[in-house]
Design a protein around this nucleic acid. Structure first.
Lengths: 252, 252
DNA sequence: GTTTCGATATCGGTT
DNA sequence: AACCGATGTCGAAAC
């Protein structure tokens, strides 16, 4: 798993190391040590000399991590060109993207550790509880939103955006449904409002709007009600079971 | 910088290693090797056995990286409790957050390398070109949006959200300005529309709305114009100089 | 603690 | 390539 490691490499050795493994494109490269980091692109930033962990993955993506926080202080998700050179006796990493033009420049002042790590690509990853999954489940079973609902369409395109679910209720009224996997906000209410208005314009009379989500913020609920729209609770995931609270043969 | 490293640690040694450095809270901890990762919280996920790089920073934040991509496959940004234990002869890392309840569980199947890295906290980081910076610059110099503009307020709260900039034009009309640091989308147009409608309701007549951004998407511009709103170009950063295109004393 | 909004958001899908 | 919407978004500020 550890292909190669250098401690306290000279700029020349670090250059050679980085060029070798960047060229192979089969290792995760990391350099730990004191660096300066510069970024210019959609925004711009400067990080004064400090300790950072620099990661370059097989796909060329770059992230520069500080001591804290989940997010890197600088990064480059899609890289068109990576170069290493020596400037003023220091190894410098340039990570560039062409469109939009973005450049991250890492100057290695005191590299302490450089490693090339083998990481086979991962295949089996599954996520549950996404909005897409909710939509599929509710398409199969619209009754989970309201009894008597008949689905007409999903992802219905309109002038003002795509309607998540489009249905008719038990009384034959058109129903526009906006889905959220998390707590619904005012933004979702306005989204729903636009769809309901649009459906009203192009044909429907007495169009209902339902915001379907596991929860809703207080201000969003107030606005929703003021607009004569509705909230229905639906869950992205089955409610978590709490084994310690379950009655058993022995406790009952 | 490299405080401690173990290669191919036994479950017991890995447990001891993790407990020691998690307790000290002064190192970035890395474990490289074959793992399974489970997550349950707002959503849920399963990653089958595969090669991962697990990072735990001093603040307890956890990220599990695969071979590709800027984003970890699983993560925990705010951690309330981290535990290590041995289950079925394997070291297991539990990273838990209480509110909302979220749990990441990493099972180390074949840990190849465990390292504790010293990273002093970084201080000097500056970002340029944020929307906040744009807003400050335009507050000092509203003429950059339009000649004769007089600022009334910034971040003005309304029923439908906060207005970035609120002004009066040379003819005394009220102007609502929505600021975007990047290309403006339809969403920004609707935001602006809501603000203009709201200001119209509570007092103004003939209220103007300006979307100020470095660029706007084509559909957003069409919708904006249909709504009788305006687009004005403003930049988050000074236009990049291209030295090779600059006329010089010699080329001219 | 809740809500809102910006972000170098990133990412994936669709046109 | 441009555009749009979801994200376990994260993160900070305002309330």
């Amino acid at each position: 798993m550890l292909r190669e490691a250098l401690t306290d490499p000279s700029p020349e050795n670090l250059l050679k190391f980085l060029n070798t493994h960047l060229g192979n494109r089969d290792c995760l490269i990391q350099v730990l040590g004191e660096c300066e980091v510069f970024y210019q692109g959609r925004a711009a930033s400067v990080a004064e000399a400090g300790d950072f962990l620099v990661l370059v993955k097989c796909d060329g993506s770059l992230q520069v991590h500080g001591a804290k926080g989940i997010k890197p202080i600088n990064w480059q998700p899609k890289v068109d060109d990576t170069q290493v050179l020596i400037e003023n006796g220091r190894a410098v990493l340039l990570s560039e993207r062409f469109n939009p033009p973005e450049l991250v420049r890492v100057v290695f002042l005191k590299p302490a550790l450089a490693q090339a790590l083998e990481l086979d690509e991962v295949s089996g990853f599954v996520l549950f509880g996404s909005e897409a999954e909710m939509q599929k489940a509710l398409t199969r079973n619209p009754e989970a939103i309201e009894a008597g609902l008949t689905l007409i369409d999903a992802e219905l395109p309109t002038e003002v955006g795509d309607i998540d679910l489009y249905a008719r209720d038990s009384q034959g009224r058109l129903v526009v449904i906006e889905l959220k996997r998390g707590k619904a906000t005012q933004e979702a209410v306005y989204q729903l409002m636009r769809y309901v208005e649009r459906i009203g314009e192009i044909g429907g009379t007495d169009v209902r709007g339902i915001l379907a989500a596991p929860a809703i913020t207080k201000p969003a609920l107030e606005r929703l009600q003021a607009l004569k729209l509705e909230f229905h609770e639906v869950r992205a995931l089955p409610v978590e079971e709490k084994p310690e609270a379950q009655p058993t043969l022995f406790s009952s």
